[in-house]
Amino acid sequence: MIVATGITRTFAGRGGRRSTPVHALRQVDLTIPDGGAVSFIGESGCGKTTLGRILCGLEGFDGGELTIDGQPVSRLRERQRAPLFRRIQMIHQDPYSALNPTRTIANILGDPLALRARQLGKPDDWIAGRRAELLGLVGLDPGYVLPRYPHMLSGGMRQRVVIARALTVDPEVLVADEAVSMIDVSLRLGILRLLRDLRSELGISLLFITHDVATARYVGQDGELYVIYRGAVVEHGSTDTVIQRPVHPYSQCLLSAIPVLRGIEEPGPDRLIPLAPLEERVEPPGCLFRPRCPFARDDCAGRQPPLGRLGGTEQEHACRYPQNREVVAVPAANA
């Protein structure tokens, strides 16, 4: 189980002395239960990727605490952290740069397995068997992929190799950052289903980072959804609650942006008009979303509303005036 409390990450701004620091993450609290599914959604630059990288130990944080299986990370030495973070494996967005182009798949999987064999005290012939087993698990034919270099495989196959490589160290959590956005559409569902099956069959928890709410729903319908805006969680609840009954205007804008398949779907009655692009340089007082919010009122400038269940909502949210709006497309009547 991973528990993060008050995670904060600030980057020094670019552009000399006058620049303001960039708040990548502001006091983020989250929990990834064992075997659970958690999704982060938000637009690019909202901090969801940074958060994922912090959870994988690929990046540090300035404030707050990250607790992995009961061990607070900031109190551990580098040497003690490494095995802890090894339980959390990242599936990168781009399967083209996630595999070393100069090495065959046999080597790419064999190296971490050799290390694993030493840790577990297994004999050397265990490696080949385990390698074939993992490839079978991700739906690849070992005889075909093992002697090949990454460039000889399709994007979908590469991403499966990446997943198999992550599985070599028997992880407890997989962090998938836009894991299907660079894969052909007809192959995406296969990868998403693989991630879902790994969770149900092996009990691996899944952190799914995406801007595409529909894929987040596919892999984690029974899980939790965090909507992140400018480094802060603005809405958090069970996936279907947030999708069907969002109360924060930003979540509603995100959900409205999903293309409507006209003919079989109709736009939700409250679908919002797309927003103006984000002005990252401006740090407004009060609610960060106020400048882009279609429902902003004068007193929203007063104070950033805390995450809570104001208005007796099922999910947590950070809006002073929560209101349910039906923005998601509905099945067409004549379909």
Partner: peptide, 24 residues
């Protein structure tokens, strides 16, 4: 049909989604 069925959707039953076999 396959492309349409392979799209994860925001509403409805997820189990109806079907992956296309093979690759382009």
């Amino acid at each position: 049909r396959g492309l349409l069925a392979a799209m994860p959707r925001i509403t409805g039953d997820l189990e109806l989604a079907r992956a296309l076999p093979g690759r382009p």
